[in-house]
Design a protein around this nucleic acid. Sequence first.
RNA 1: GGGCGGUUAGCUCAGUUGGGAGAGCAACUGGUUUACACCCAGUAGGUCACAGGUUCGAGCCCUGUACCGCCCACCA
Length: 944
Amino acid sequence: MSESKDSQECTLAKTFDAQTIEPVIAELWDNANAFAAGAGRVEGEDSFTIVIPPPNVTGSLHIGHAFNNTLQDILVRFNRMQGRDVLWQPGMDHAGIATQMVVERQLIENQEPNRHALGREKFVEKIWQWKEQSGGLIFNQLRRLGASCDWSRERFTMDEGLSRAVLEVFISLYREGLIYKDKRLVNWDPKLLTAISDLEVEQIETKGNLWHFKYPLEPGISYQHPFNLDEEGNKSDWKPSQGEPAGYDTRDYLIVATTRPETMLGDTGVAVHPDDPRYRDLIGKRVILPLVGRKMPIVADQYPDPEEGTGAVKMTPAHDFNDFDVGNRANLRRINILTQDGNIFLKENNDFLEELESTHELLDTMSRLHGKDRFEARTLIVQMMDTRELLAKTEPHKHMVPHGDRSGVPIEPFLTDQWYVNAHELAKPAIASVREGRTNFVPKNWENTYFNWMENIQPWCISRQLWWGHQIPAWYGPDGEIFVEKTEDEAQLAADAHYGESVSIERDADVLDTWFSSALWPFSTLGWPEKTPELSRYYQTDVLITGFDIIFFWVARMMMAGLHFMKDEKGTPIEPFHTVYVHALVRDKYGAKMSKSKGNVVDPLELIDQYGADALRFTLANMAVQGGDVKLDPARVAGFRNFGTKLWNATRFAEMNGVQFDPQFEPQEAKLTISRWILAELSIATEEITTKIENYRFNDAASAVYKFVWNHFCDWYLELLKPVFSGEDNDARKESQACAAYVLADIYKLLHPFMPFMSEELWQRTATRDTLLCHARWPSAVSGDHEAADEINWLIELVGEIRSLRAEMAIKPSRVMSLIVTNADKTIIDRVQTHDAAITRLARLESVEIATAAPKGSAHIAIGNTSYFLPLEGIVDFSEERSRLEKELKKLDGEISRLDKKLGNERFVANAPEQVVVEERQKLTGYRSQKDKMTAALGRINEE
RNA sequence: GGGCGGUUAGCUCAGUUGGGAGAGCAACUGGUUUACACCCAGUAGGUCACAGGUUCGAGCCCUGUACCGCCCACCA
């Protein structure tokens, strides 16, 4: 190549080496402090804030994080390029149970003393040490993904500042009566030895049995129990809905059913429905609890369903949530017969022993069952009941058993003192905000889920019997009086004042549920309760991006906390965010949930190693369809890596042809049709990408970039430029070089939110830039140029038709031939002349000639009113062309008759919008003219 | 039991206000052309789950059915 054509050596490698370059770019951003809040902003622009869903301090990056953070980063980078004052607030969650478990496990592995041996203070110290050394791994991984958080503002839920916020919130809510202490049943985890909230309980379907036990009535009491007879004359159960029973048995016992025999030791009654005719006369009478000998009342309650089971239900108020409620209404005793770790507890259990006679049977029961594990006790009790002929029936039974989501063991409803938040009260404004559109869910249907939960919300149990977390700021006086204060000193003062003397107080040992501090995240991270500049600038945050699995855990609670504590000058509550974008969970390529046990986990870091962060991000963005699951097939990541390579090579090609950024270039002044065309296409793409990101249509935005780069820019624009670059027209070449550079620069910008590394690298390498790409101004769309578009679209269609025809006719690619154009008007003649070089090159022709008559022995193409012929004589068999034309004609006939019918339908013409009718008419005219030409061509072939 | 979502090409999925269905991958045919084989050109492939209804017109709206998935729920 000669110097005069500005050609130069290419400085880019053949492919983008993500492994090497991504870290370099990351460092470039780091050194420039490129993601600090407000970096790159334009004076006067609004702020844009996202708080990261804080990952667990124990966590490492899984594919869900990668997805979630990719979407956040797209929005953040997009807004930063819009010139907004952007803050992406990063941070981590102390993750109470999870972290404590990790460190405890580590102690075991290192054969160090366990936490009880260490004591609370030392153990917590160990966790802090662990956090400093091993915690927060995930942040480096997020950096590798390209997450543009303001890392200098990293927060931790156990930070001093955030802990102050927790303290403030707890104390305020306590003083307002919205936090209180209560003794009621909680979900108790017998393995982790702590209470957990309803949300941390997972219902798992389990195969079990329904055991039917006979509970004898007090001596001397009996009743008539109805029965039915089946066809074979056997007795069967009778239900109140079945009319008259076949007969009655005299019974001196009741039959109750249970899935949990081990809890019967804590039974304190039997409940029946007040209207159940079978038991009406027994209400107020007593039964005797087998194995124990406790005399328990038969009580009436609405809870038992006469149509279910036997209609009589044993009551264990201390070990079952329903029974607890019934017990409250019927005034039944609560007897706890389990220890914290789920063993039977009878000896020296005063609740249990109260009112019992010390019979031989009781002593036997106690010696056989005391201290036994709850499941072992279940088997034993069934055996003991069977031995006494009190086991009426054993039915296999599938039911949902609550399990602790962390420990995986069945949870135990357990009677303890715990702290609760009055969620019902706090939920009211949170519901109203969404109801009234001040906070919006995207997609909107998640609002139903939100309402459904919020409207049925239960008191939130916030105390945990753990050591890692925010210790509850409550102290107890000698008689149990509670003093909630910020510090021990203040509590001491309050206590002394209360008692009128100096007393010793003791702090509540429990810590708060981790989600309690997470609920404050959107304002605690900004410095609240201090009135910081950040708080006023960045709160309310803009959009929260999260998976649907934590709407309840987190979104709902942030709404409650934010609305309660954040107010404007007029005292109007401010929502923590105006939009909640809820994305799907990432599943494997078969749609199954990823889990370690299934072995189908896709490790995002492996994908990054293999294909680069950009490729992974682009894949995830492409799959972020609103509503659907995301099924990730690693093969797709390879495909999008290829997309990156394509652009990389397009840049290489441009560079090799002297394409250089020219600040003088004004797109409005472009003269060449191809320039005006690609600029118009660029504008359309810009408009679409912008709108789609603004509407959280990440997949549409990504595919719009993809299409523009690959199908418009590479497939056509660069191909069309090849003859220009090698041609003699210096002005045309110069404009093309400047125009290509201009378009490329915009491509880098448009691509940047999706593929930040490669786009930044190309941006930096293709010109001397006065800014980082991540701070460059987002392009704006300008109006299109229809004339140029028509012309190039004609060109594309023509070349496409010729290519198809050549392939169908099996004409060798190496064979060049002429194209004969007939029936061309001035416009077409001009176009043919202008694009002669491009057409011959792209369609592999020798020349393009204007003629007045169709040449002999040629294949025919009709576009608009013009005919194009490829001479085939001596090249192919004409029967090929004949059958091709016949096939085309058949297709056209189909279309024509369809349109004829449609347009012949008066009601269509009358009712359809004017524009649709016009379009259909135009289509019909087009097909007809094409048909005419095809018919003529066929006629010629048949003559020859 | 309640609620939500899905069913479109061999596979994975798009299809935003109703005007005869698209992409990527896979398949098939061909290809050393000023970048790119992680490429280029071309081809084939669909009763849009089923049945009704509304409409001039339905993948899209309505009703029902079947199958699949998820969430919530106190069935002893």
